[in-house]
Amino acid sequence: MRLFLRNSILQIILALFLGLGLGLAYSWLISPVTYVDASPAILRADFKDQYRVVIAAAYESSHDLARARVRLELLSDTDPVGALSAQAQRMLGNGESDEQVQPLAQLATDLQQGVASISSTKTPAANVPFVSTPFAAISKTPEIETPFAEEVTPTTTTEFSEPTVVTTLSFEQTPLAPQQLFTATPRPTATPNRTIGAPFTLVGQDIVCDVNLKSGLLQFTLTDSRRRQVAGIEIIVTWAEGEDRFFTGFKPELGNGYADFIMQADTIYSIRVVEGGSFVPNISAPTCTDSNGATYLGGLLLTFQQP
């Protein structure tokens, strides 16, 4: 102790560490950095869900897929389409109405296919995203000035370059998370239109005997007139004791127009595709035989297509 009191170097080092501790305590606990200009990427999960709902609802109105895509990118999801699908499933699981879930499923499908489900009726100039978006308005960098006038053609789909990341650091209340400014670079692409409203008709009913699949698996594949799978179509399965409703597209890894249902043995089901009202009665799980001669409950694959 006496040695310590006499050693001025040790005293200075101790004072330095003491000051460091006080400084850290003040900056982390007493007066931490305050966020006043946060980006959507750091929103709490439930607010991100709300943000996605609003993006999908806006898209349902505007059919501006490029803008919806950029808005989703603000949330920094690793897989925006997967996040939309997962949220739609959660909402269905929570008993929310089909009306609320449908826009999310539709947006997920359109993002995956890269085309808006319904072509925008806006003029090309009005349809270009970010001509006057807030992101453009706040930018002070010349990179986001894009030659829309020269490049834009009357199409509805655009591609985007990588976001420009601008980081601002200051002691005053400033965002410490990177701010992302997105530069829109429209490039013309084909914009196929989906046939809207045509009834789905049953074009295939195949027995599936595969021991690797779940017993009694009833699979649906819904395609439009161009044989592209269609998500967000409601299917109603009814039987003597009950009814189940579900949508295509919630297992995007199996196809946007895919849906499935587990049938029980000795039960007769009726299928109705809500959009267009296609009705298929007398569906039941077939009996299959494996390589050892044992029987098991097989599955069915129903294929619906718009004419």
Binding site: Q11, G21, G23, S27, V33, I42, L176
Partner: peptide, 23 residues
């Protein structure tokens, strides 16, 4: 020395490794 330590602590806590908000 204590003042320098406090300054270093503030720089580290506010600039180099600020509190990260995620929610």
């Amino acid at each position: 020395a204590a003042l320098i330590g406090i300054a270093l602590g503030l720089v580290y806590g506010w600039v180099l490794a600020p509190v990260q908000y995620t929610d």
